[in-house]
Write a protein that binds this DNA or RNA. Sequence first.
DNA 1: AAACATATGACGAATACGCATAATATTGCG
DNA 2: CGCAATATTATGCGTATTCGTCATATGTTT
Lengths: 301, 301
Amino acid sequence: MNIRQLEVLRTLMSTGSTIATAKAMGLSQSGVSRLLQQLEADLSITLFVRDKGRLIPTPEAAILARDAENILLAVDRMSGHAQDLRSGAAGPEIVRIGLPSSMWENFAPAMLVDYVRDFPSVRIETFFDTTIAINKLVEERVLDIGFLRMEGEIGPGIEVEQVASGESVCVIPRDHRLAELAEISAKDLRDVPLILIGRQRPNRLALDQSFKQAGVKQIVKIETHTNSSACSYVAHGLGVTIISSFYANLYRHLPVVHRPFIPHARQQFGLARAAGVPLSIAAQSLSDALKRQIQLSQKDI
Amino acid sequence: MNIRQLEVLRTLMSTGSTIATAKAMGLSQSGVSRLLQQLEADLSITLFVRDKGRLIPTPEAAILARDAENILLAVDRMSGHAQDLRSGAAGPEIVRIGLPSSMWENFAPAMLVDYVRDFPSVRIETFFDTTIAINKLVEERVLDIGFLRMEGEIGPGIEVEQVASGESVCVIPRDHRLAELAEISAKDLRDVPLILIGRQRPNRLALDQSFKQAGVKQIVKIETHTNSSACSYVAHGLGVTIISSFYANLYRHLPVVHRPFIPHARQQFGLARAAGVPLSIAAQSLSDALKRQIQLSQKDI
DNA sequence: AAACATATGACGAATACGCATAATATTGCG
DNA sequence: CGCAATATTATGCGTATTCGTCATATGTTT
């Protein structure tokens, strides 16, 4: 296995043909074909099905392309460090943090404002992604620290410290009739347009079940995959959503209110890092800044 | 740079001599010596000082050995996955749309408000992801339509209709001195904290090159991966960013201004769908709603 | 029929690596 | 302290392997 082969895999997954890949990489088509074959031979895995003169990626290819991407990212990073060292700029330390998409707008900047002042020579790299992706990136050491929801199995290469918790709440437009209730259950949501996330995930399944038990049919208007977009849809009157209060608190500036959802359910959130790896001072301080900002974001007004 | 070289660096750091490294790796001493030299040449960095017939690691070696270790770990992980793989996983019409993360807050809800009213029985699933991921999801027919940046080769399974364009702009806090300039070039950004995205991607490389040609060292404070987070950081005074005006226009509500970045660069954005697949009426109407919302978002105030 | 796509034969250039050896340094012993 | 033995790195030279291109065959789609 070599780096060139991995670049081919990555590019081929995005272009879909050896000719386009060759062009993008400055190689000949036959070179690309050979590099792919070599990689398949090295891995003893069929990455692409040859169907009617076309290359169709296998499910295995999708999985391994992700690994390839991580390797290439690490290679880029090393090259970047080498370049910094060559230009005499003793390469600023880079601290990488993964956060859920819901945190980019106000949470992340607020967390970084003081931090950047206290660590002027540190470069920060932020990733906004799903809990699953963050989990993976921490394990793979692409990230120094990651904030994630504690749900399901935590990988063996990860240590997680719980830093926050929340309860399931129903987020409602401020001028909606449901806003007058102290709490909401499935019965209250009969015929109410719903905006739901996390389909097939454990918490979602539990939610679906509570509707079934209440004998209420869900009127799902929108399925989405981030708490942020769900809250925004609510604020625009597209329906109501049921998410963790942790995230709902991040959107208090929107014209929405939230009410506990019955049956009660709680969620835990944690700070993850690779197991057995001490954090640098800079990374540890960013971790502390994150915790402080979490406390601020969850304070009652 | 190749994987063997990195293994040599790693082993050499722990054994201290080429002879022991050769033995540990099953190579000859001279092979090790050469691989080390090649790596130093490839990186243009002296990794070991030759002192009295001994190899003394430089500080640079320590930094880069850590990177090398990360790469090798990632390689091991990929091999492990390959091994695992070798040893052996319908209802209401749903219209799925992929959008960049930057569009969840106001763009997506605004697009959907009228749509939902016109198509009360349609369920919408929204995905907020990168251009690469959206491209893939469309091709795999996970998504009916996707909005993406036209960059690099488009896969054979996709049809893209250009629906928007933008130019590179520098996004600046409203009260910043640079906000008084009519346009911005790399020269204007000397010693200015930068928030950059898209490292190693074509457009970023071009941007990096324009700094190099201007003889200006980039002071990158934050690397991030979404236009939205970059704009939010700018709005919080953490630095300035250079992104496409298309995205900058989505953030006009923030206390930032944007100025054309010199040299001029343009970007094209398109609406993708799987090739040869006619859209359902619902999907086609969502596609039309997207186009209308794009026009609205790019209108001059 | 033309255009597009992948795979493969043949070939040359480049790379990887070992053997042998030169030059230098360190260690152990008398 | 001097010297032989041992340890260390680098390099000349040669061989084998790898990398990549050109040309082409074959198949598919428009």
